[in-house]
Simulated scan of single mutants.
Amino acid sequence: MELDSVDRRILRALQRTGRISNAELSEKVNLSPSACHRRVQRLEAEGFIKNYVALLDARKLNCPTTVFVEITLSGQADEVLEAFEREVARVPDVLECHLMAGTADYLLKVVAQDTEDFARIHRQYLARLPGVQGMQSSFALRTVFKTTALPV
């Protein structure tokens, strides 16, 4: 399915305000409410819209520390990668896990209360992940900007 300019306007608006009413959205994108609703349903059905979520404030939830962890595995065999990916997906403090090209095999985005809490996460979870040969952690000092919006 090809996206036209109206589809792109709908996607941009929904990325900014996912709880916008269909009436407001149709006004923003210059469509009738019924046509707008059909377009949104089609974008959902085609998989362009995966889900609707609430973005939470990490500071208010006492998880203000972001740590990026580079993981190097002992090997690249499928079973090593699969075992690591299966177990890392179970770590509640890991927000993202990316298979990388470069010096590290994986890059994790982890949230913690503070350095002590990260030490707990490291001991309890990260150090026990299968196939890990090396780990390098970098603490974010400040988030300059953050978005979940894709360029549409």
Results as ranks from 00 to 15, higher is better:
V144A: 13
F48W: 15
Q41M: 08
R12M: 05
E24G: 07
R16H: 11
L126C: 01
M100F: 03
R42K: 15
E85I: 05
D78N: 09
V132D: 00
R123Q: 06
A89S: 15
K50P: 00
D4S: 10
I20T: 11
Q124G: 00
L129V: 01
P92W: 00
Q15D: 07
G131F: 03
V111G: 01
V29F: 02
A149V: 09
E85Y: 03
S21W: 04
S34D: 10
L107T: 07
F118V: 01
T115A: 12
C97H: 10
E2Y: 11
T115H: 08
M135K: 06
R38H: 10
L107Y: 01
Q15I: 01
P151D: 12
A140D: 05
R90M: 13
N62S: 13
L55T: 12
A58K: 08
N62F: 03
S137E: 01
L11I: 12
G18M: 02
E96M: 07
V111K: 08
Q41T: 10
Q113I: 06
R9K: 15
H122E: 03
R123A: 07
V110F: 04
A119Q: 08
S26C: 11
A45M: 09
E24K: 15
T65K: 05
C97Y: 05
T147F: 08
T143V: 13
L55I: 14
T143R: 08
A58G: 06
F84E: 03
T147H: 04
A77K: 15
D7C: 07
T143E: 13
T147I: 07
V144L: 13
S74M: 11
R12Y: 03
T103M: 12
R59E: 15
H98Y: 15
Q136F: 14
V110Q: 02
D105S: 04
G18H: 04
G131Q: 05
